[in-house]
Write a protein that binds this DNA or RNA. Structure first.
Lengths: 213, 213
DNA sequence: GTCTATATGTAGATAGAC
DNA sequence: GTCTATCTACATATAGAC
């Protein structure tokens, strides 16, 4: 068939492609899809512009690939965390949300720029209906798995209520990572924004709407 | 002085400027700052491109003016609502958050496109540090006033904790308005996303972190 | 204030040599 | 796969007639 893959790419090629994706995620995260220029990505990756087109196929494709690469890894980590939590038997709403959030926040706080950029990338993706397809592909499976677990704990709750709680929680988590400057400005001080506080907020809010539905 | 204002603009001029701002808020909301083209704004407003430059001075200035126009009105409404609430004497955390959120959600649900666009505009502004100055000017005074009221109810709470709650709450409110498609997708159904549910979530979460701090 | 014409820069994409 | 050169389109901004 004509759909057969070409022969495996060389090590050099893979390395170049990785460099391009590394640069792309920083630039896309910083400036958004429209604001990012392929030329800046090429410069940061220290490759000619042509190569960015060659590996990315198009700006839109490159953006999707960039998100997909991290999202795949993130989803895997989150599913493993959830599996471990289920084995531990400590299934509470707080524990499930903590599991979901800690998986990312830990990476962002310890693994440096790439994962910090990913948070902003996700914020761009999930605030623009343009990326609806990408969202469904990258985020929905994991979100649904966690949602199911929560609904098991609250069998009388409506799924729609839980879905709202999930979306509010994720947006709070993104604000926690991406809008620390807002919290500092309003709070008149600098703080290690604590993960516990975020999870406490979301768990209490979540429980309130699950019981009330 | 050379800072003296020129003579008052004609009625025609004010009308044109309003048309331009009306168009600008829709285009900026839809496509973000970078993605919006002054040409599209001009087309939508049915004026030549040159006029957009004349009234806006620059793309960045035009963006700020667009946000400022609605933000000023929003801030006034929110401050009046808060004053009325204080007179009523029914000062609870839930009532304060309901007051803050209902002020906007009502406009978005009853006043059509412009106020719905404003929600997305605010999301763009508060997710990009580039607009830090604009944020401080347009949103911080109102946010602080509500924050003070909440801290009066919880005198032992840290201001930093309340600031975090405020930021989480606002981001949840923006998600409520702007990411309804996400809630629908995860909830597998269409719903009148209810304001009560949002306020319940935020009030419960807020209280949990205020008591715990 | 209004509008036309144009200046200037830069974007994404492509063709083709190596 | 890699890289250079170039095509085409459209962006913001300005100068100047009305």
């Amino acid at each position: 068939m004509s759909t057969a893959r070409k022969r495996a790419p060389s090590a050099r090629s893979l390395e170049t492609k990785a460099k391009i994706l590394d640069a792309a995620e920083l630039v896309f995260a910083e400036r958004g899809f429209e604001g990012a220029a392929l030329r800046d990505i090429a410069t940061l990756a220290a490759v000619p512009v042509g190569l960015v087109h060659h590996h990315g196929r198009s700006k839109e494709e490159l953006f999707c690939q960039t998100v997909r690469r991290r999202a795949t890894e993130m989803a895997q980590i989150r599913m493993e965390s959830l599996a471990r939590l289920k084995e531990s038997g400590d299934l509470t709403l707080y524990a499930i949300l903590d599991c979901f959030m800690r998986a990312y926040i830990t990476l962002a706080e310890t693994e440096g720029a790439p994962w910090r950029a990913y948070g902003r990338l996700v914020a761009h993706v999930s605030s623009d209906p343009r990326w609806k397809g990408l969202t469904e592909e990258c985020f929905d499976p994991t979100a649904s798995a966690y949602l199911d677990e929560i609904l098991t704990l609250y069998p009388d709750a409506e799924r729609a209520a839980a879905a709202a709680g999930q979306v509010y929680s994720v947006s709070s988590m993104l604000a926690h990572r991406n809008s620390g400057w807002r919290i500092d400005a309003l709070g008149e001080g600098h703080q290690e924004t604590e993960l516990e506080r975020l999870v406490t907020f979301c768990a209490a809010g979540f429980e309130a709407i699950l019981n009330g539905s």
